[in-house]
Amino acid sequence: MSEIKKFMFVNRKAPYGTIYALESLEVVLITAAFDQDVSLVFLDDGVFQLKKGQQTKGIEIKNFSPTYRALEGYDVEKLYVMKESMEARGLTEDDLLVPVTVLTGAEMGALMDEQDVVLSF
């Protein structure tokens, strides 16, 4: 594992309705231990994972949204959100709980092409 590879995690599902978002986050935290180049992208309903103000008491599921703010401490600093996905959901960057880079679909596609490994959730 001496060679650094570019890993991209593609998040396309809303939190809580399915387990994908939480599973992805856990794999990202584990991957971060291996000193690889990690990018997280959020598109389609995946952008909902980063919505501020999640309150899960009423559905009795752990609120894992604060963990996205821990990613910086894990040296995972490349977070990208797709512009069209965000706009289609009535969200702006101010609605998100971490700083992100907003990319258009075309820019997102180009970034995806540069990766060594792409994992979809």
């Binding site: 809580y16 909902f48 999640q54």
Partner: peptide
């Protein structure tokens, strides 16, 4: 269902 709306941080919209 309000608890699902709140869980997702969308209770106010």
């Amino acid at each position: 269902l309000q608890p699902d709306l709140d869980a997702r941080g969308m209770g106010d919209r």
